[in-house]
Amino acid sequence: MADILVFVARRTAGAVITFAAACVLVFLLLDLLPGDPAAIIAGDTATPEAAAAIRTGLGLDLPMTERFVLWMSGLLQGDLGTSFYTRTPVATLIVQRLEPTLLLAAMALLWALALALPAGMLAAWWSEERFDHGWMLFTAGAYSLPIFVAGYLLSYLFAVLLGWFPVQGFRSLESDPLAAFWHLVLPSIAAALPITALLSRVTRTSFLEVLEEDFIRTAHAKGAGGRRVLVRHAARNAAVPIITTIGSTLAILIEGVVLVEIVFSIPGIGSLTADAIRNRDYPIIQGLLVVFALFHVVMNLIVDVSYSLVDPRIRLR
């Protein structure tokens, strides 16, 4: 048991360093980009003096090092700065928009896991048979269809034509849980499509590889039945690459969620991101990037730890 605590501690330390490096990059990246937010806020007709006044007001005239220190020390206290436009703290803005996005992402991930893992496993077991061919065709389609096309298609079919689901919008979990779920069905399916395709392909490949291993032949030679071989002997050995992929599909998931929120008019992080970029509202963009970075680092930490649970050789190495 001690070895796993040491492993978790080591990985956590690594994650903290990664996150800190990401924060520095986030600050530098936006500072090096072209485009003057003060000029945009002031508008096309403003005089240079007006723009300069706005710049001073926002603290953009300070030297970079000074702004960096200010920004980082704020970050450490949970202060992500203030929006250039609305003058609301960025942290508040993000927290307000977090619920729809988290619900949407969680639901999409749930669909993907529930569908991709069993289907990929069965496609491997019946490889080159009808189910395998059919499923692989589906995944090729699901992966190549752009998410906004899939979103509008789903919305047109199941909301506009059939009227089974709401066309767009969002209800909070607090006000009406059932309606919240109902509004999220189509968006979450749209966001789940590409990661379902990717995950079930990886699952299939991973199982195909493991099913060729000597110890699978040993299991058959012991007299174990098909289901036992698949579940008891193959599954755990196939899990490591699958878990790794789950970690990396999260990037695709986030990207999908941003697009889906715009298609279905969901007031989440995605639409906040889109607005902030359009307005060059640097503090919000920086705050969002920091949150995304944190999300990724934490998810990768979870992935690392969980595959060390599946395969003890990883932490004993």
């Binding site: 291993e213 000597d214 110890f215 007299g223 050995n237 395969d311 050789r313």
Partner: peptide, 27 residues
Amino acid sequence: ERTLQRVRGRHISMIFQEPMTALNPLM
């Protein structure tokens, strides 16, 4: 196949060349 499963291992067993790969590495 079902009947054969009750023979394999029970009445006729097999061992292989490379015990490292023939044993399940995670059990």
